[in-house]
């Protein structure tokens, strides 16, 4: 055989050698010397059950950089779809593996109820709540609606004529719209909610003057409000927000509703009690670190760290509340 005929085989051999070297090398350098004892040199993996760019993805990636100091390299991967329930259904296969974490939140609670997901959060071990982001109700600057009270008056007069644009069906914006509808004495199922694939798209529907109002995450809309493109009517937080001190809360506007779009991190079911508390320690230590605090400031997220039995109880009550309102809205 001439040289040309041998070349492909040489290439294959070289490639094999490189592959073997890289495989051996990468299995050696995982973790850092100060990695937690229970990790035993294993690498943490965090699933973001959404597309890159969303809140869960951002949370997972911020965790990744905030954890670098304590547990070394972590891997973040995305499993997109259906309010996180696709990710959740894949996540359950990691039963008993403490190195596999998943970011989740209120939206997943709602999606499980409205998609009738066969897999539920009882198949995970809740670790810690991390952040909250509140919702904001806005209208275009040229809208005749001046205040939340105006909007409520219109909704009381004819619930169907007030169209509210927001994110995906069954998501946090629709839950808020339903809660507001119920709080003012209306039928949540009659709230005229117009679902969009994201906050930005909902914004265009309301800016074009088609929909009456829009609901979106505060951090997404602060720039629009500050630039004077949108008039903020109310926020869903218990107190006014530092970023928007002039915007009243829903309660101040006479609507007895509070809703936080919280995000949390869970571990697989079937891990030991020791592993659970070790993971909780890792997460709590991360939330106290400078890197995480800087992240919260930059992203405009509120620190909502909550662990242990308190968090378990919170999860329970949120699941009940969300399932109920979704049922009343005819979504679950």
């Amino acid at each position: 055989m001439n040289v040309k005929g041998v070349a492909p085989f040489v290439a294959a051999a070289v490639a094999t050698a490189v592959l073997l070297v890289s495989t051996v090398a990468s299995s050696g350098d995982e973790g850092k010397s100060d990695a937690r004892a229970f990790l035993d040199g294993r690498q943490l993996r965090i699933m973001a059950p959404a597309a890159p760019g969303g809140g869960w993805d951002q949370t997972a990636r911020e965790m990744q950089s905030a954890l670098r100091g304590t547990v070394g390299r972590t891997e973040v991967y995305n499993v997109n779809g259906a309010g996180g329930t696709i990710g959740l259904s894949q996540y359950t296969r990691y039963r008993g593996q403490p190195t596999e974490l998943m970011v989740m939140g209120l939206v997943m609670v709602g999606a499980i109820a409205s998609n009738h997901s066969p897999v539920t959060l009882s198949q995970t071990t809740p670790l810690a709540r991390l952040t909250t982001d509140y919702e904001i109700i806005v209208v275009p600057t040229n809208s005749p609606v001046q205040s939340m009270r105006d909007l409520v008056a219109r909704m009381r007069a004819d619930l169907g004529s007030v169209s509210i644009a927001g994110g995906s069906a069954g998501g946090v914006e629709q839950i808020l719209a339903g809660l507001v509808g119920r709080a003012i004495g209306g039928d949540p199922a009659k709230v005229n909610y117009i679902a969009h694939s994201g906050g930005g798209e909902a914004l265009t529907t309301v800016l074009s003057g088609s929909a009456t109002a829009a609901v979106s995450g505060v951090s997404e809309l602060v720039p629009q409000v500050k630039a004077g493109k949108m008039r903020a009517l109310a926020v869903s937080s218990p107190q006014r927000l530092p970023a928007l001190p002039d915007v009243p809360t829903l309660k101040e506007a006479g609507v007895d509703v509070e809703l936080a779009n919280w995000r949390a991190v869970v571990a697989p079911a079937g891990i030991t009690v020791d592993e659970e508390s070790a993971l909780e320690d890792v997460v709590v230590e991360m939330t106290r670190g400078d890197a995480w605090q800087e992240t919260l400031r930059r992203r405009g997220w509120a620190d909502a760290t909550m662990v242990g039995p308190e968090f378990d109880a919170f999860m329970e009550s949120e699941q009940r509340r969300i399932a109920q309102v979704l049922k009343e809205m005819g979504l679950a």
Partner: peptide, 20 residues
């Protein structure tokens, strides 16, 4: 996949990968 307006799955037949 999931209907954008009502959140109901259409033609997904319970297969998670088809929900989206």
């Amino acid at each position: 996949g999931i209907d954008g307006q009502t959140g109901q799955a259409r033609l997904a037949f319970g297969v998670p990968a088809l929900l989206d």
